[in-house]
Design a protein around this nucleic acid. Structure first.
Lengths: 244, 244
DNA sequence: ACAACTTTCAATGGCTCATCGATTGCGGAC
DNA sequence: GTCCGCAATCGATGAGCCATTGAAAGTTGT
């Protein structure tokens, strides 16, 4: 068990169990969820490394040490904030069996993944850095990633088979796609922190997450398609899907 | 001044100035360079965050507190390890004025940048994360990055003008190229840490830095070229350049 | 009334970055 | 020679953060 779970959150305020909080406040729903929500906001504002357990505790109305009742380690809080909207695999299941060319599926996947990364509480690189160090704690994370990779490999292989894609190494392509998405997400986040008036740091045009996602998918697909002219049709098809 | 500089390193061992070291050892060349070298090795092995100032000090034959004579902050040590081989701008200057189509220059730049990132002591994301937090300390880093970005914008603009590239937003393309390079570098590093027999974590085929760099440049250029068929010629041209 | 359980707290330890003033040896001024 | 200043290092110390531990304060069931 990675960390303690909350009971089903009984919408009421019927004097929760356990010792009352020093602040006097009581949790509205599940304490665990409140911690995750508060942490998510803080991570988004300042980035994981800049947020201390005391910060999270304060934002959640607890003392620092009380957090460790719900999460054994700080990393697990981050993991939880990502689990909230980490759903690329759900997406695979949704469109995996459905009809559509491999190329279209790939377009939608790249677009979806980029978008979803941009909307996560903080840079996925932070998560990955921690996951590197403790593969056991983050076993699920790596399994998910592996499945994502494998699915891309399959898709690309099929597209090559059908003659839709230029011949290339599916494994390498999968690698590149995932890299690209994360890279784009990083840029998106960067521009958020240093607003358009930011004097310091690197400057470029501000972009909406949706625009970046569409561009990422378009770029990658154009590089892969045997007839790049087909991209326009692909994009029209994808436009009607409205994944989100 | 970010940190103290060493005198010109007088190849001899003529009793260096200052209080002798507790270990008895004397610096071979410039103490500063030895620190940077030692830190670079440690960073490459374990990653920046996993290396303490005490580790670096020990590896360099000093006490922890002595490091602060040469570097005011830990971040500055990392900065120095990157400065050693941070030379993308030198590359620009070298091929900037030379002949060759914008597309070829871009190909070479992407290839070079990817390669150079793969060979850096540790994940450039670490550096960027720190640079985000203290733009003043890392002003040069951001300026360099800005120049790189601007140069790409210029190149892409020229290529579009000449009809070599498909019409697109140069700023967005520059963004993507830089993102892509860093993403690829990250994958490269990942595979280094978890060797082919690594049970945990995400698995994919091991790749040489050169292969990845070539692939990155090829992919991106294919996405940009109006006639993707031109890529082969571009790659032949680039092959004779042998940047490195 | 009492025992068991849940949740919180205060106190504390250890690790790391960073600062400070003291210390050691060299070289030049006189 | 002796003394002063400088360069480079050291040891001690403090502050901040993660994490552990045992006690405390409620509720619920018997």
């Amino acid at each position: 068990m990675a960390s303690r779970q909350s009971p089903p959150a009984s919408e009421e305020l019927p004097r929760p169990l356990g010792r009352p909080r020093a602040t006097g406040g009581v949790p509205i729903g599940s304490p665990r969820d409140e911690i995750v929500a508060a942490a998510g906001r803080l991570f988004a504002d300042r980035g994981y490394a800049q947020v201390t357990m005391s910060d999270i505790a304060r934002a959640a109305g607890l003392q620092q040490s009380s957090l460790y009742y719900w999460f054994r380690k700080k990393e697990l809080v981050l993991q939880a904030t990502f689990a909230v909207n980490r759903v690329p695999l759900e997406f695979i299941n949704r469109i995996g069996a459905r009809s559509g060319s491999p190329a279209l599926k790939l377009y939608r996947l790249v677009r979806f993944d980029t978008l979803q990364l941009c909307r996560s509480p903080c840079d996925v690189n932070e998560l990955e850095r921690l996951a590197e160090g403790q593969p056991d704690l983050f076993a699920t994370f790596w399994e998910d990633r592996q499945r994502l990779h494998d699915w891309i490999v399959t898709l690309v292989g099929a597209a090559i088979e059908e003659g839709q894609f230029v011949p290339c190494d599916p494994d390498l392509v999968a690698l590149s796609l995932l890299s690209f998405d994360e890279g784009i997400q990083k840029r998106f986040r960067h521009q958020l922190q240093h607003g358009p008036d930011g004097a310091n740091a690197f400057r470029h045009q501000p972009r909406a997450a949706e625009e970046l996602a569409e561009f990422a998918a378009g770029t990658m697909l154009r590089a892969l398609l045997k007839r790049p002219g087909d991209l326009a049709r692909l994009q029209r098809q994808a436009a009607t899907c409205g994944d989100d």
